[in-house]
Write a protein that binds this DNA or RNA. Structure first.
Length: 595
RNA sequence: GGAGUCUUAGCUCAAUUGGUUAGAGCGCCGCCCUGUCACGGCGGAGGUUGCGGGUUCGAGCCCCGUAGACUCCGCCA
């Protein structure tokens, strides 16, 4: 590929051993260093940099031309590889021992004044996104795109080796009432009807199991019309996997093997498998999160026994009304500033606490307005249970279990940030979170919703609870895979019995008529010999983001959208020609400009 | 739907308590410079301080509104 009329080598391939060769290179002018006489050009292509030297005494015509070069001009250079003058080698460059003495310079294209410097980190993200094709020239993004490719390739290679078949499923599919808001696509041929873009290939992959594919995967684009975050895009990519006649252990093993293959291929790292497993209950209890970041300690400690009979009414009454008292010990955080304390209090309130009590241990003294309510026995018990030492800062949560855990879990993460927790070495802490609740109560809709999705099966041992309609206690055969506190995937064993699926729909408040219109195909499929099956889907964008060490999935997507779902570069979404709407039988309800 | 932060030259930022002609570095243009690698030196151009309104003798700065960006909450089965 590199040898053609434009070039014989890439810009990171010439070494000492090539000295004397006649070569051609092509690329972008990374930087010019024009000394009036001698001119240095760093030529850049996707592989690296090579220095070109123009000397007026050798070729005045070329030097004159080179003098006009500016950053990001596209040029082609032919010439001879030469050793750099002794003492002027650049050890920071792979090609630092050599330079090119050109005999020919072709200016293929000139660049205008640049929207931002390519070597600095512009903070203005909309400017970057507007000129994304230019932004992507920066080595960091060239690296990220190639990393993403390597992850996808390792995924395909591994799953292929395990007998999985990649099957494409429709992008134009059907809207379903459960889950996220759908993107809709109007049908021209059937006016008034709409396709929906898939939120995930969930139903199709289950139908492929009924079809006897047995082991399916797909690197699938998914679409959800919800508000965005740094780690959420309206369209994103999943590594989607499903298999028949399997148990969760089989899915865990294939996922672990695949992730191991990915880390081997991209980072040459052997990750530790199998991953630890914790139940949802334990994760929330100990870390205040269903996606625990275990790279640092600061676990939630239950203080129920200590304060059951306490004279401190706030704690005692929380326990008496069925709640919990829990705490985290932030080591060496007694120096907390007023601003930090205020922020943590805000966080506590945001997640439902009435306030935030904390104790600073400074100069051997426990500093807090609540300490005076504690007995000596309580203080001693606290000290030993939380391993309190000089310089620590202890934060309390007294509330319903869910609220106390979530509040302390959020504080735990924020405090770790405030303490500038940075792991000494790269840590890849994978774990499985299992036994999620099957249902969650929606106070907004006043009904039970599926926590994962409506096709998730209850755990076999919880079937009786399901029959007894003890819905909050029913656990699902569902699991998430978590990496460094980020949920990178989740899945479940599916319901394959039509009767059980009907019972599930019934619990979710989906009427028999709606079941038929919305899920009829799936229900019929379950009646035609559906095998037991289950699977998982991993967020490719998030996974690549973590491997790349990026903070946002936008940095590992070639053309992402901003947090209002706008592509700043192409200005989409955009208005369309009225004739297009007429063809679709669509009339806009209102024209914003009239407002 | 809600909260917070931000918006000054092409880019990154500054401008004291509301007070002179809104500055600096990079980039750009011109001149000089023959071994640099973020080359260097001298000079120059470049601004409706996001937009609209208000308070004031006077607003980049204070107030109200509005637009946009980013982060978060809700939402994301």
């Amino acid at each position: 590929m590199t040898r053609n009329m434009y070039r014989t080598h890439d810009c990171n391939s010439l070494r000492k051993s090539d000295i004397g060769k006649q070569v051609a290179l092509a690329g972008w002018v990374n930087v010019t260093r024009d000394h009036g006489g001698v001119i240095f050009i760093d030529l850049r292509d996707r592989e690296g940099l090579t220095q070109i030297v123009f000397r007026p005494e050798e070729n005045a015509q070329l030097a004159k031309q080179a003098h006009t070069l500016r950053s990001e001009d596209v040029i082609q250079v032919s010439g001879k590889v030469a050793a750099r003058l002794p003492g002027t080698e650049n050890p920071n460059l792979g090609t630092g021992d050599i330079e090119i003495i050109p005999s020919e310079l072709k200016i293929l294209n000139r660049a205008d004044d640049l929207p931002f410097p390519i070597d600095a980190e512009p903070h203005n993200e909309d400017l970057r996104m507007t000129h994304r094709y230019y932004d992507l020239r920066r080595p960091r993004f060239a690296r990220n795109l190639r990393l993403r490719h390597a992850v996808a390739k390792a995924t395909r290679d591994y799953l292929d080796s395990q007998g999985f078949v990649e099957v494409e499923t429709p992008i134009l599919s059907k809207s379903t009432p459960e889950g996220a808001r759908d993107f809709l696509v109007p049908s021209r041929i059937t006016p008034g009807k709409f396709y929906a873009l898939p939120q995930a290939p969930q139903q199709y992959k289950q139908l492929l199991m009924v079809a006897g594919v047995e082991r399916y995967f797909q690197i699938a684009k998914c679409f959800r019309d919800e508000d965005l975050r740094a780690d959420r895009q309206p369209e994103f990519t999943q590594i989607d996997i499903e298999a028949s006649f399997v148990t969760p252990d089989n899915i865990f093993a294939v996922t672990e093997g695949m992730l191991a293959a990915i880390f081997r291929a991209t980072r040459n790292i052997e990750i530790k498998i199998p991953f630890d497993r914790v139940t949802y209950r334990e994760a929330v209890d100990r870390y205040g999160s269903d996606k625990p970041d275990r790279r640092f300690e600061m676990e939630l400690v239950d203080l129920g026994e200590i304060f059951r009979e306490s004279g401190f009414k706030v704690f005692r009454s929380a326990l008496e009304s069925g709640g919990v008292v829990k705490a985290i010990n932030a080591k060496r955080f007694a120096g907390i500033t007023i601003g930090q304390a205020d922020e943590l209090t805000e966080i506590a309130k945001l997640y439902g606490a009435k306030g935030l009590a904390f104790i600073k241990i400074e100069n051997g003294e426990w500093k807090s307005p609540i300490v005076k309510f504690f007995s000596e026995t309580e203080k001693e018990a606290l000290q030993s249970k939380l391993k309190i030492e000089e310089g620590d800062c202890v934060f309390f949560g007294a509330d319903k279990w869910e609220i106390a855990c979530e509040v302390l879990g959020r504080l735990r993460l924020r405090i770790a940030e405030m303490q500038k927790f940075t792991p000494v070495a790269e840590i890849w802490d994978f774990l499985w979170v299992t036994d999620f609740p099957l249902f969650e109560w929606s106070s907004e809709e006043n009904k039970w919703n599926a926590m994962h999705h409506p096709f998730t099966r209850p755990k076999a041992e919880d079937m009786p609870l399901f029959s007894e309609k003890k819905f909050p206690e029913v656990r699902a055969e569902a699991y998430d895979v978590v990496l460094n506190g980020v949920e990178i995937g989740g899945g479940s064993m599916r319901i394959y019995e039509p009767e059980l699926q009907d019972k599930m729909f019934e619990t979710l408040g989906i009427s028999p008529e709606n079941r038929q219109t919305q899920f009829g195909h799936l229900l019929r499929a379950l009646h035609l010999g559906a095998p037991p099956h289950g699977g998982i889907a991993l967020g490719l964008d998030r996974l690549v983001m973590l491997i790349a060490g990026e903070q946002s999935i936008r940095d590992v997507i070639a053309f992402p959208k901003n947090n209002r779902s706008v592509d700043m570069m192409s200005s989409s979404p955009a208005e369309v020609d009225p004739r297009q709407l007429r063809d679709l039988g669509i009339r806009l309800a209102s024209n914003k400009r009239d407002a």
